[in-house]
């Protein structure tokens, strides 16, 4: 194991985390809602509750716009590098959608909000998806013989 030490990306990560924390804080303090992305997306498209449509679309649309504005403003960010091809993206998307719907949340709802709520379900879910993420990367990179 080699640990990469890169001060710039550590600082950006900490700054990005603060913005994410602030977003989650606004949602719960003002709107009484968990800022969970898989929940907002699944709720918008699969549980059509009339009064919930607007905030969910604005939250998700705001995310796209916020990322666009940030990457336009901070040009020093490395461009996104995809890690798999069309088939991998389709399969991974399908599994992520199925899993987050089944497991009631993802990195935002369980990881950022649920852990802060001290929810045992969210703590267990976060440890589980982290562990399976690590194991999957290990298998793909170090066991399967695919390109490292």
């Amino acid at each position: 194991m080699t640990v990469l030490m890169d001060t710039d990306s550590w600082l950006r990560a900490a700054g990005g985390g603060l913005l994410i924390g602030l977003a989650a804080a606004l949602m719960i303090i003002f709107n009484g809602r968990i800022a969970g992305v898989s929940g907002a997306l699944g709720g918008l498209l699969l549980d059509p509750v009339p009064g919930e449509r607007r905030w969910r679309s604005l939250f998700l649309g705001g995310m796209v716009l916020g990322a666009l504005l940030l990457t336009t403003a901070v040009t020093s960010l490395p461009p996104a590098q995809l890690q798999t091809g069309w088939l991998g993206m389709a399969a991974a998307g399908l599994i992520v959608g199925y899993g987050t719907r089944m497991g009631s949340g993802c990195t935002s709802g369980h990881g950022v909000c649920g852990i802060a709520r001290l929810s045992p379900r969210s703590i267990v879910a976060t440890l589980t998806f982290m562990a399976f993420g690590v194991a999957t990367v290990f298998v793909i990179r170090h066991l399967s013989g695919a390109a490292a």
Binding site: R12, A13, A14, G15, G16, G17, L18, L19, I20, G21, L22, A23, A24, L26, M27, N31, R33, A35, V37, R54, W55, R56, L58, F59, L60, G61, G62, M63, V64, L65, G66, A67, L68, L69, L70, T71, V74, L77, S108
Partner: peptide, 15 residues
């Protein structure tokens, strides 16, 4: 919700 989305998306990209 819009403001939270903006901050969230910016934070994910910056981070």
């Amino acid at each position: 919700a819009l403001l939270a989305g903006l901050l969230f998306g910016a934070g994910l990209a910056l981070g």
